[in-house]
């Protein structure tokens, strides 16, 4: 027996989705869930939600997107963005989620260098992963 599906526009105006759009400059509603981003993401194997699923949560205004590990595994390589048929640069959406999480005090594991690293590695890690 088919279960009842209720469709509503209410979620589409969720403040969370708008905030992510404002910060990233990317329209989350342009995504039609084709999955090309996830297919081409070199880090997808290590993510708890695939890039298209992260974008879906944002479309639904679901703030649980902020507690995912996926944005912290994203390395901003933009492989998703160059493949997206709708021109959504998902790396920017991921950055907006990281920034929103950091501003709310949600942080990944702290950056504690265990050996000498090239400066570019440390600077990148601090900029992406610390408030």
């Amino acid at each position: 027996m088919a279960s009842e599906l209720r469709l509503s526009r209410a979620g589409l105006e969720a403040p969370f989705a708008r905030r992510v759009e404002e910060l990233s400059g990317e329209n989350p509603y342009a995504c039609y869930q084709c999955g090309k981003c996830s297919a081409g993401c070199p880090f997808a194997d290590h993510m708890d939600a695939l890039p298209n699923q992260v974008l879906r949560l944002v479309q639904l205004g679901d703030e649980s997107a902020l507690s995912l590990s996926a944005p912290w595994v994203c390395a901003s390589c933009h492989a998703c963005g160059v493949r997206c048929p709708k021109g959504v640069d998902i790396a920017r959406t991921m950055e907006a989620l990281r920034v929103l999480a950091l501003r709310k005090g949600i942080t990944p594991a702290p950056v504690r260098p265990d050996r000498p690293y090239p400066q570019i590695a440390l600077i990148g890690a601090y900029r992406k992963l610390t408030p």
Binding site: P113, P116, Q119, L122, I123, Y126, T130
Partner: peptide, 13 residues
Amino acid sequence: GETLLALFPELAR
């Protein structure tokens, strides 16, 4: 060079 960064990694911020 790396000695300063090892003790004060926040320089990279």
